[in-house]
């Protein structure tokens, strides 16, 4: 039976699962990476995701326009981000904890709205697959990599885009400076609050998008609590990726591929208790990080509010 795991079908299946499962993590983790890079830990990703998932679904359902759904998800994510930004920047709230508040609020609010506005679990016809000409015809792998829905492509495009913004633009430089040494950045004329407002709202927007990718692109349903802890995993993956876009990609793929693998292990009837199979992705993520990590530089100002001196 174990030999079946090394078949082409299983291999391709695991790859495909990995790509799909990684999509929401990529959006949310890269958004979170930006806010952490500027020194703000947002633990409320889960709440932003699920509200995003709800609004994307609801707006797509009533307007019939998926892109409006995406916009709505980004909008509500941005609003949650704005609230988080005000609480963090203006009121200096302890970041790890305010995030828990936003998480609870998002989970409760999305469920409440779902009950009052929709009431029952329904489907929506989500983003269709788009086969990229030529590339999708590549034997074996073409179909997996180049025949996905638009949000999957977008999620993976976020990685080089984030890398470019972070390392090749003045904005990226400002973000890194604010997260590394806000006092110095301030002296150089960078507005620390402005940069942080930007990154926290960006993080919220991306989390909203992550939610949308679940509810109108990958699963095409909304149900209460459907993010099931993915927002917290997304935060964890930022640490895995050491605040680097490619690292985050690596983390998201590792976690998702192992999750795909554990499903195949169960499907092929390999005799491991399902509980142990289920814990594999969590366990391996810790293990890999333990074995590989050497000197990671945490953004120095992470979780620390900024106060102008004097």
């Amino acid at each position: 039976m174990i030999s079946n795991l090394f078949s082409m079908t299983a291999f391709l299946g695991i790859l495909a699962s990995g790509i799909r499962l990684a999509t929401p993590y990529l959006f949310a983790s890269i958004g979170e990476m930006f806010s952490q890079r500027s020194g703000v830990l947002n633990l409320g990703v889960e709440g932003q995701m699920i509200l995003g998932a709800f609004f994307a679904f609801y707006v797509a359902k009533i307007t019939g326009n998926l892109w409006l759904g995406v916009l709505a998800a980004m909008g509500v994510g941005a609003l949650m981000g704005l609230a988080m930004a005000i609480v963090t920047i203006e009121l200096h709230a302890t970041q790890g904890i305010s995030g828990i508040g936003f998480y609870l609020f998002g989970v409760g609010m999305s469920n409440l709205l779902f009950q009052t506005l929709i009431g029952t679990v329904e489907t929506v016809s989500g983003f269709p697959r788009i086969a990229i000409p030529l590339l999708s015809k590549i034997p074996i792998f073409g179909d997996i990599f180049f025949n996905q829905n638009i949000l999957v492509y977008l999620a993976f495009l976020m990685v080089p885009l984030a890398w470019f913004i972070l390392y090749k633009t003045t904005l990226g430089l400002k973000i890194r400076a604010v997260g590394e040494n806000p006092q110095a950045a301030d002296t150089l004329g960078v507005s620390v609050p402005k940069v942080r407002y930007f990154t926290i709202i960006l993080g919220g927007t991306m989390s909203g998008l992550a939610g949308a990718s679940l509810s109108i692109a990958l699963l095409n349903v909304f149900q209460q609590g459907m993010t099931a802890g993915q927002g917290f995993i997304a935060v964890a993956l930022v640490y895995f990726g050491a605040w680097k876009p490619w690292g985050v990609l690596g983390g998201a793929l590792l976690f998702s591929l192992v999750n795909g693998l554990q499903l195949w292990i169960q499907v092929l009837g390999i005799p491991i208790p399902s509980e142990f199979s289920t814990m594999m992705p969590y366990f391996l993520t810790i293990l890999v990080l333990t074995l590989t990590v050497s000197k990671v530089k945490t953004p120095s100002a992470l979780t620390k509010p900024f106060e102008r001196e004097g």
């Binding site: 609480v87 009121l91 709230a93 998480y103 609020f105 989970v107 409760g108 609010m109 469920n111």
Partner: peptide, 25 residues
């Protein structure tokens, strides 16, 4: 009322309390 409101309210309380710390500090 739906139980979901309780969760949302719980979240609001956390956000408000954590923000109120500002005045103390």
């Amino acid at each position: 009322i739906p139980s979901a409101l309780i969760t949302a309210l719980n979240g609001l309380v956390v956000v408000f309390v954590v923000s109120s710390d500002y005045w103390r500090i």
